[in-house]
């Protein structure tokens, strides 16, 4: 499929198939893909490459001697990176841990959900998909605030748990690591569900039937046929969940405590509260590097090259 689409987009024509086009028409054809890419490239340049460049410039600055708060001079000091990493190791670890737990939880919830919609949705399928996306119609912040109300000490959830003696009398759910992971899971669940749904939905049902014909039970068919074929969706979903979750600071800020701060909270504090731009820039780059390495290892392990 990929070869075909490339040649259709104006790659080299297989010779002999048809008459050579007039030269000017040929060059126009050849330049078409680049013209089509232009808006995307411009967008990337303006909103990704340029900020990254200025940010990297900022990351090696130091405070001007006797300078004001927020005043820095360029000294090309690379040690900034090491100092930032050394001081905030714990927060990096916490970000990866919480995001990992949230991703796992979202997978455990999202996969059956996507499966149900794809195979058992019937005529409700589109409605169910809209319901998955529906939370996005409300602001991220408001939804996270809503969780504070839901998990509040005087709320129904906590009171029920305490009544059932599932929770000690003194315990609470908000302002805990548990609440932070719950918030992350909830907020990024659609990012997990939709890609899995997309890959399950286009799955060839004849292959499943063949599996049953070959005496595979429901469980074996799921494990040997459905799951492997939906792996691209699973990988895409886990990445789309893990990456934003690792950089998130809203959930930890609203649902957590001083002991559950993630790297996003540190970056926010450095940028906004302390006007310490170099450290914040270093941390941003380090976070990008950490995520990039984790993602590369993950894609290698799962072996889904076609995804990227």
């Amino acid at each position: 499929m990929s070869m075909a689409s490339v040649s259709r987009l104006g790659g080299p024509h297989p010779s002999g198939n048809r008459q050579a086009l007039p030269p000017e028409k040929d060059t126009r054809r050849r330049s078409t893909p680049y013209l089509l890419l232009l808006p995307g490239l411009l967008w990337l340049g303006a909103f990704f490459a340029l900020p990254i460049l200025t940010l990297s410039g900022t990351s090696t600055q130091t405070r001007a001697p006797g300078g004001e708060v927020g005043e820095f001079i360029q000294t090309l000091r690379l040690a900034n990176y090491w100092e930032a990493f050394d001081r905030y190791q714990e927060h990096f670890g916490r970000s990866v841990l919480y995001a990992g737990m949230a991703t796992l939880a979202a997978l455990l919830i999202g996969y059956p959900l996507a499966y149900m919609i794809a195979f058992r949705g019937g005529r409700w399928r589109n409605v169910l998909l809209v319901l998955v996306v529906a939370p996005f119609f409300c602001s991220f912040i408001l939804r996270t605030y809503a969780w504070r109300q839901i998990l509040a000490d005087e709320g129904t959830v906590v009171r029920t748990f305490k009544w059932l003696h599932l929770m000690p009398e003194q315990a609470s759910l908000t302002a805990t690591a548990f609440a932070v992971v719950c918030g992350l899971t909830y907020n990024f669940l659609p990012f997990m569900t939709l890609p899995i749904y997309a890959s399950l939905e286009r799955l060839d049902h004849r292959l499943l039937e063949a599996g049953h014909d070959l005496y595979g039970g429901p469980w074996t068919v799921l494990r040997k046929v459905t799951l492997p074929l939906s792996m691209p969706g699973v990988v895409a979903g886990t990445l789309l969940t893990f990456i934003p979750a690792a950089g998130d600071f809203v959930n930890a800020g609203l649902l957590g405590t001083t002991r559950t701060q993630m790297i996003g909270n540190v970056i926010e504090s450095r940028f906004i509260d302390l006007n310490d731009y170099p450290t914040a820039a270093c941390l941003s780059f380090l976070m990008m590097a950490v995520i990039l390495v984790l993602v590369l290892v993950y894609i290698r392990r799962t072996g889904t090259e076609e995804l990227v």
Partner: peptide, 13 residues
Amino acid sequence: TLLSACGTATKSS
């Protein structure tokens, strides 16, 4: 904030 505040080094006062 990102672009204006941290892009370039500001000179000492």
